[in-house]
Amino acid sequence: MQIICWGVRGSVPVPGPATCRYGGNTPCVEVCAGDTRVIVDAGTGIFPLGRRLAPNPAHYDLLLSHLHWDHIQGLPFFAPLRHAGVSLTIHVPVGCLSLLRELVFNANCHRYLAAPFGRPAADIQFETFACPAPENRVPGARWSIGEIEIGTVNLNHPGHSVGFRLSTAGRSVVYYSDTAPFDEILFGSEYLGQAPHKDTKLAGAERERLAAMRQAAIDLAAGADLLIFDSHLTRQEYPQFPHYGHSTPDHALEMAIAAQVRELVLFHHAPARSDTELAKLEEQYRSMAGAHGVALRAAREGERINL
């Protein structure tokens, strides 16, 4: 199994000299096993990936975790879509289908972002999957794409986001790109523009719902070789932005230890985080993780990870 991160940045792409080392593109991860290639999320990172792939006729599968712009904004610019002979299956959470269609492939080409080249020449199919709330004790959808098995789970993020496990022949990578810690606030689609008062107590039912969500996320990630996890905010920043729906490296590490994964990959770096700051964070958390027998790296664009 081979994994390449093409975009590692959260919220908005940040070009410039301060991000050249870790990369400024928004989320896109390529996972290959044998002849199967699965692309996870379509942030701006899918643009350089598309340049690498085109124009060979081929089939691609794209998994979308949710429709926040940073996870779909590259899709209309994915070069293989311009070629007949290319086919793409886009796997989306069931509630997202109609909006996605309208957004990316709207015929009038004007609303939102729409493909700049009009109707794509490639053959595009949509597949939906259901990801029921974990408190219902129903596991998320599972299916196979070629040689890769996919598992899903709901995460703690405004508007919902989905986490994926991709496995093949005893190797696996887990992608939890956008999630808040599971001990606080939000899930679902409410907007928490102002941070809730710090003495606000969650109702018992909410706490239970979050605990079930956390357990389901740990279960799906259990024993994975690689856990790619939201580390948008530092521990120091988190109290200012508890409503952002994003995690800290501390929470990422706690989940990695709980799920007994081999290596943690810090992901969805904050736009303002410079290469220098990221390198420092990486070093700091690498030694913390090492104490628990977990390897750690901060996701870096273009880096190839072989499992």
Partner: peptide, 17 residues
């Protein structure tokens, strides 16, 4: 135009939309 393009190849002119 179109899409932001971060990276060392666009450092001089810039990659922001």
């Amino acid at each position: 135009g179109d899409i932001a393009v971060p990276g060392p190849e666009t450092i001089h002119y810039g990659g922001n939309t």
